[in-house]
Write a protein that binds this DNA or RNA. Structure first.
Lengths: 150, 150
DNA sequence: AAAAAATACTTTAAGCTTAAAAATTTTAAT
DNA sequence: ATTAAAATTTTTAAGCTTAAAGTATTTTTT
């Protein structure tokens, strides 16, 4: 009977995580759209590029963001159109390209990131530091397929 | 300085939640696809209908799942094609329709739900009952736009 | 060197998602 | 009763997402 209850409790936890995550994502999407005329996937890609000064291969972006190759192709296409990133040939391997933020892209992301942190901080206002830390640790310890370097 | 650290800690928490949620969703998608030839959005819609014996209006479905009206329209279209749900006219209001699971849909969902709970239970293996409960409570207490009845 | 396998990326087809606009129908105001 | 406003749903346009197939290039095997 205890296993049964544990299973139900974990299911409830999952449903709540899902609900909170979707709500936060939805809020972020809305604000990125109205205040920065961009989308969450674009923001995520730019964040990955911003964190890594030298740019990333399509490949690495795809793995880091856990989305399909084809998906990254489309997002980068649009970011290039917008002048936020550029594809740079890799000497010695004509299959791959390195994607870098342009100066404009870097400046634009920098502004968004500051606000993004403020938004998150406000949305999670009810979470005290030790709770944030505790939950973070727990999430970090989840079995293999679920976590990864962060 | 403490506010600064708190903000960073909350941001870290958010990023981890996002990562775990995406990973779990990705696993669920994959299994629903390969083992039940369906998708997560279809599953979510069927879950909402299953929980409510009398069917729901498009309207209610949209609000309950927190997705746009137009989105629900498309998913229901496909579920109707598959014979899982049906649209039933509401007498007295020709604008709205009530969506109900068919017998086949109910049977199909019932099977999936059992497995779904098993999958979740396995994915969250590292979370003890008191932790699940604790985190669940915290998530539940988040400020207004973030939570809702569940 | 030629063939096979692996790697990096793009394309395609199908479906999900949203916001905004449109179409219908109902309710409220005048 | 007419008109205006609100409610319910669908349509549309744009973009996100995936799996699978396709293209080009590099590496490994034979």
């Amino acid at each position: 009977m205890t296993a049964e209850r544990l299973s139900k409790e974990r299911l409830r936890l999952w449903l709540r995580m899902l609900r909170v995550t979707r709500q936060v994502e939805s809020t972020l999407r809305e604000r990125l759209r109205t205040e920065h005329d961009t989308t969450l996937p674009r923001f995520d890609v730019m964040a990955a590029l911003y964190a890594d000064g030298n740019g990333l291969k399509m490949n690495e972006l795809s793995r880091r963001l856990r989305v399909s190759n084809g998906n990254v192709t489309g997002i980068i296409d649009r970011l290039v159109e917008d002048g936020c990133v550029e594809r740079i040939a890799i000497e010695g391997d004509r299959r791959a390209t390195r994607v870098c933020l342009t100066d404009a892209g870097r400046a634009s992301f920098s502004k968004m990131a500051t606000e993004h942190e403020r938004w998150i901080n406000a949305l999670f206002e009810g979470v005290a530091e030790e709770d944030a830390h505790h939950i973070g640790e727990l999430l970090h310890r989840l079995p293999t397929p679920l976590h990864d370097a962060t």
